[in-house]
Design a protein around this nucleic acid. Structure first.
Lengths: 130, 130
DNA sequence: CTAGGACCTACCGTTGACGTCAGGGTCAAG
DNA sequence: CTTGACCCTGACGTCAACGGTAGGTCCTAG
C-alpha cells in the first residue's frame, strides 16, 4: 500500500505517518522513485502507536516498546520498559477513574438540586449507581 | 495563604497558579500591595484542575465545568457540559483499558518465550492472570 | 501525451501548559 | 535599616505532535 491508503485505513493524516517515520516508529520500503510502500500490518502498527500516544507516552517511550511487537522476543531491558509503561498506564487509569467518579458525584449533586427536571436533554442518564 | 504555600500544598509550581488565574480558573484576593491571597479551599480546587488536565481537558473545558463545583447548582448548559466531559473521560478510560490489556498481552507473550527467566529483574510480576 | 491526483522533500507555523529570565516591589527578622 | 526570602508583572523560550505551504516528481486514466 502507499501512504495515502495506510493513512485512510488507520484514520490518521499522511503527515502523521511521515512524522512517525521521522521518529523511527514506522519504516517503509521505497519504490525506485522514492515513494513509500507499506505492508498491510503497517495499519495495525499505526493504530497501536496511536493508542500509546493516547495513553500519554511520548515518541521516545513508544520507540522503546514498539520492537516488542512483531516478534515475541523480549530482552531484559524491553521487559523492564514494558512493565514500567504498563504501570504508568495503570496509574493513569486509576487517576482517570477517580476523576470520572468525581464528575459523577457533581452531576448527581446537581440533579438533586434540580427537582423540576426529568430527562430530556438528549444525553444519557448515567451517574446514578455507585 | 499566599501563592507559594498553595503551590507547595497542591504540588504545582507558582507559575502554574498564575497561569490558572490568567485562564480564569482560579481567583485570588489581593492584598493592598498586590500580593495574591487564597482561601484554604484553593488547594482542592487546584488539585481538581490538575485532575481535569490529566484527563485530557483543556483550559476552556475546565473553565466550563469548574463553576459546577463550589455551589451545587447546575444550569442546563452546565449539566450538558458535565455529561459530555464525563462521557469523554469514560471513552478515554475504555481506550486506556484496551491499551493496558494489549501491553499485558505482549508481556505475557514475551515471558512465554523466555523459559530461562524466573523473576530477578526487580519489577513485580503481574500480567499473569487475565 | 496530457491532465490531475497522489506523492516527494524541506521548512516554517501552531497550540497548550507551562519554564525561565529580567527588573523591580514587599515584609518579617535581626 | 538592611538582608534575604517571597512576591509582582511582562515577555520570550520550550517541547511534542503534528498542520500547512512551496516547489517539484510520479503515475494512472483517457
Amino acid at each position: 500500500m502507499r501512504i495515502g491508503e495506510v493513512a485512510a485505513r488507520a484514520g490518521v493524516s499522511v503527515r502523521a505517518l511521515r512524522y512517525y517515520e521521522e521518529q523511527g516508529l514506522l519504516v517503509a520500503d521505497r519504490s525506485a522513485s522514492g515513494q513509500r510502500h507499506y505492508p498491510p500490518e503497517a495499519v495495525d502498527r499505526v493504530l497501536f502507536i496511536q493508542a500509546l500516544y493516547a495513553a500519554g507516552l511520548g515518541s521516545r517511550a513508544v520507540l522503546g516498546i514498539l520492537p516488542c511487537m512483531e516478534h515475541g522476543i523480549l530482552t531484559d531491558e524491553m521487559h523492564e520498559r514494558l512493565l514500567a509503561e504498563r504501570d504508568r498506564v495503570q496509574a493513569q487509569l486509576d487517576e482517570l477513574t477517580a476523576t470520572r467518579d468525581k464528575l459523577d458525584a457533581v452531576i448527581r449533586a446537581g440533579q438533586a438540586h434540580r427537582p423540576g427536571q426529568s430527562a430530556g436533554t438528549g444525553s444519557d442518564g448515567r451517574a446514578g449507581a455507585a
